[in-house]
Design a protein around this nucleic acid. Structure first.
Lengths: 216, 216
DNA sequence: GTCTATAGTAGGATAGAC
DNA sequence: GTCTATCCTACTATAGAC
């Protein structure tokens, strides 16, 4: 096992540096080759290093994939939180979600998530590690929902945890469905434009309601 | 290539019969082993036949998967249409969608769809065949949406094609996300209960509106 | 139409030189 | 820590016996 911690000198070829290169190559491979094509050899080709390094630094491909997801989660949930904090209305949140989704789609981040999720069917050992690492995503979305609804009288009516789970599911499902499209970005924009418009109509209706409706 | 068409006698061991057994085994393997585990050998094991038969009857694994999807699409979109025709309200449609999703989840039909969609990243040749075969799903959902909204004054406001696409995406995304859960069925029920409740609130609000709101 | 046998390839992972 | 070389396994697909 390679030792951890920063080096005294600023030498560029440290162990941590190599691990980072391997993780970057794994992400590229998952994104472009899919989980079925992301073999040790394919990953090594993307990063231009030796295939055996993967096993020296990470032990197994699955452990490498988990490390890659760790890095991705940390990066992206931060960014989500940045963009989503301080958003006050439902329609605004949908609109920003659309922008985020388009970015993520084009950068291929969601592709990585979808491919890893699909691999759980074949690699049961990945289930627990993936579950832990998907929770922050749902939490970030839920926090944004809660904040956006904070000054609405309807907050208590909305089960934000369930909605957050559904929204994450939409992101994943859209990624796979849009993989069939010729113009995925265009279709994605159109879909979120539709959703934003519906959210604005909903808001208009809410503003016309005299008092919060009873929850059945 | 095996000849097609029905036999004169009712002999059970015809070519078509074998092809059906192979397709059934492919579906089982996709469902339980995932796309990464659904090798010719694994499929043959599920159906208890010789691995070489797959190539004799279908030519390649990808062609077998497409045939399996064909069969699944025909079966299930019929069933969807049966259950969804004549449903008059939005909340009812959501409720029935929840029942259907739970059935499909437990029977593993959506798992097959999700696994095939994920494989497109690695197998570009599957993209076109899959796109053609996913269209009926979206069409069925759209038809149900259109029918459910038929006597509402808001029909023209709702882009049913986009909504249908999103709903299919939710089905796919949920399948993958629920693959991480210990109690997938329970979580699924809970999510659709939430959605149904929200749909009922929306309906109540709509019934209180004096006139259709302008579309921005 | 179904079988056995096998060719040919690619994969995960490790040993051992450097 | 990184490389080459390799083991072993599994895979797709085909050839040829039956």
């Amino acid at each position: 096992m390679p030792r951890t911690g920063a080096k005294g000198s600023s030498k560029g070829s440290s162990s941590e540096d190599t691990k980072a290169r391997i993780i970057a190559a794994a992400r590229t491979s998952l994104r472009t080759d899919g989980i079925m094509g992301a073999s040790a050899r394919a990953i090594a080709r993307h990063g231009d290093f030796n295939q055996a390094l993967i096993f020296y630094h990470f032990g197994s491909l699955n452990d490498l994939f988990v490390a890659a997801l760790d890095q991705l989660s940390a990066e992206r949930t931060d960014r989500y939180a940045d963009r989503l904090t301080g958003v006050g209305s439902l329609a605004d949140i949908v609109e920003i979600a659309g922008e985020l989704h388009l970015e993520e789609l084009q950068d291929g981040h969601i592709a990585i998530l979808a491919q890893l999720l699909a691999s759980v069917a074949t690699e049961p050992d990945l289930r627990e590690p993936l579950r832990e690492r998907f929770q922050p995503w749902a939490d970030t979305v839920e926090a944004a929902l809660t904040e956006a609804l904070a000054d609405s009288p309807y907050v208590t009516l909305v089960p934000t945890a369930d909605l957050a789970y559904l929204i994450v599911s939409v992101f994943i499902g859209l990624e796979l469905m849009l993989g069939l499209e010729d113009d995925a970005a265009g279709r994605d924009k159109q879909l979120f434009t539709t959703l934003t418009a519906l959210a604005r109509i909903l808001e208009a209706m809410l503003s016309m309601m005299p008092t919060p409706p009873a929850a059945d």
